[in-house]
Design a protein around this nucleic acid. Sequence first.
DNA 1: CTGAAAGCGCTAACAT
DNA 2: ATGTTAGCGCTTTCAG
Lengths: 342, 342
Amino acid sequence: MGHRPITLSDIALRLNFSIVTISKALRDHPDISPKTTKLVKSAAKEMGYTPNLMARGLSARKSHTIGVVVPKIAHFFFGSIIESIYKVAFDNNYEIILMVSQENAEIEKKHIQTLMAMKVDGIIISITQETKDYDIFETVRKRSVPLVFMDRIPEIEDINIVRVCDREGAFKAIEHAINLGYKRIAHFAGYDDINIGKLRYQGYAEAMEKYQLPIHPDWVVRGGFGDKYGYEAFMKLYNENNLPDLIFCVTYPVALGVYQAARELNIKIPDDVDVICFGNAKVQNFLNPPLSCIDQPTEQIAERSMEILLENINNPEESEKREIIVPTDLILRGTCISYNKP
Amino acid sequence: MGHRPITLSDIALRLNFSIVTISKALRDHPDISPKTTKLVKSAAKEMGYTPNLMARGLSARKSHTIGVVVPKIAHFFFGSIIESIYKVAFDNNYEIILMVSQENAEIEKKHIQTLMAMKVDGIIISITQETKDYDIFETVRKRSVPLVFMDRIPEIEDINIVRVCDREGAFKAIEHAINLGYKRIAHFAGYDDINIGKLRYQGYAEAMEKYQLPIHPDWVVRGGFGDKYGYEAFMKLYNENNLPDLIFCVTYPVALGVYQAARELNIKIPDDVDVICFGNAKVQNFLNPPLSCIDQPTEQIAERSMEILLENINNPEESEKREIIVPTDLILRGTCISYNKP
DNA sequence: CTGAAAGCGCTAACAT
DNA sequence: ATGTTAGCGCTTTCAG
């Protein structure tokens, strides 16, 4: 069965034109007369022609393909971002080559190399939590492959960045809580050697300082970004008999861990301990009580990243680097909406 | 500053070998002496050589690339499957080209065409809810591109299939509930013109019949697979004053909608109405009460799909089609674990 | 408007 | 063990 795929040459033979004419006609090149163009296109369709994108890319030195590297994918934040990136790419006639680094810096490096080997026209990346060696990004720059960092940003100079305003988002949330009447506010803070961990803590700290509230050191619990860590952190404070009135979680999985621990300990949210977190996910609506949060507009992050990348692809010269900071929104649901502590 | 990428020819020039020798050495071809191989490899590394995968693919007629098409991605089930597919691909030195059809049959068709144009070595697909026209799959077959259908299966003959045993999974869940003492069991059933909708209903119906329980027609509510539909279906039964003792939801988002409606109506789960659903997601652990479900082992689905596809890629001749049915597990958490109705 | 020539970077056959 | 020849399918000059 496996008929050899139809090529330009097949169409050329059939129509008694040269390969070049066929190639041009198919791409609506102004050289070719409308009549010929029409003829060629209909023949191509009839014969079931599909262009060979590898050949086209090799010849044209342009793959019309964008590489995207993210740490994981079965996660609401990245899942939404990726979905939006795909939409923008589709609208702009680009294909996406998605790579998943699995939070592993080695794999990440390999993926970037593969993407360059595939001759993608540009790369969007959210780095892993453990990425410390930034040489590979230097290599990318040397090869002049346009590059945009998204959300998880390394500390290097002169790069394109799209991120949420973590500091301000955290600040707004804590200020809101303080205005409600909260004073005893803890922060489950992740690590501080990654930008989101550091900046969210800063926002928290600034708000506390502005209203002259003490930051109890035991209430800034570090350790991770997942539900397990949220669970353990809550248990720790509980066992130390040191529960605060409100917990600000660095990510929503951390808040999930808090919900779980609270349920097991029969501690009521929001009455006994209230919760708010950074990061929005649809499922927060279905928790009991629905979880309030600082929303990171994934669609905007994706769109702006693609926008800058496409700009860089189309103007390889004008290489002024951009830093886009997307604003956050406070989304109030069933937590952190009133203060009713003794 | 955009140095032209290093090619085989650059290395050949430097080492005074022919291009072919370099090419072979880099791929550990037995023709080449170990000494030369070593020399070439170190030179390549030093010069920062990266192979051009488009050129290699064009020449070798093999892209070492697999196309994957799914309806969506920011969804736990597909997200997990994709993540596993990426892992298997990585271990087997294949790259994944992921396409998202957004539940749109037109886009799906375009994606499949693009994948063929990119000369992927094979395709794994989960079709959209609205895919009715199966011509494109015939085209894929004609071009002898290996193809595996995963989870969402069209009704055509002689294809590779990997899916969960929906019927049996549903049956097991309902049987479990009946053994607990449940009799008044409703089913929020999605649509029945897609395999998962039809088969899950069948499992439900068979269990009810086996234990000679009546299927109240009003209790089989059709309409969709999302949380909105779950919410509305619950509200409908409530307004009709016709709530059952247990609701079996066709997907977990439907169950989320039920949780939301119940909370708003102040109806207690599992005491007033109990719930179980098809489909597992981590977040179910964090609901109150934690939601029991029929687990679809995403890792296995992904692994088996890749396995069959790779088999087909490596033995293009032996084209006997396979149908893999992956077993489900009943995962009991905080719902559907006891019967305590009046 | 059309086409002939050259080459993108690589690999597979066939020498040597 | 190494090299020569011939493409893969397409696009980009450049001539007609």
